[in-house]
């Protein structure tokens, strides 16, 4: 049973790793680099919070 579990772990690892690589490729070819790297630190705070004491 343990050896079967070990083989199953290898299988799951390979499948999920391939899925992530596929999704990475799909996203990188579907969206522009400017959009993907458009996150800005503190953006929401600056918009949503009035900084008053």
């Amino acid at each position: 049973m343990w050896l079967s579990l070990s083989y199953a772990c290898w299988g799951i690892s390979v499948v999920l790793a391939l899925w992530m690589l596929y999704d990475w490729f799909k996203v990188d070819t579907s969206y522009s680099e400017d959009v993907l790297t458009s996150s800005r630190e503190g953006e929401l705070e600056a918009v949503s919070e009035k900084h008053r004491i």
């Binding site: 070819t29 579907s30 522009s32 959009v35 458009s38 996150s39 953006e43 929401l44 918009v47």
Partner: peptide, 22 residues
């Protein structure tokens, strides 16, 4: 490559993609 962000409705504001506040 096209920016199809609006079609999937995932942006936080405009065409920017940010981490999700959940």
């Amino acid at each position: 490559m096209t920016a199809a962000v609006d079609t999937v409705g995932t942006t936080a504001s405009g065409d920017r993609v940010s981490l999700l506040r959940v």
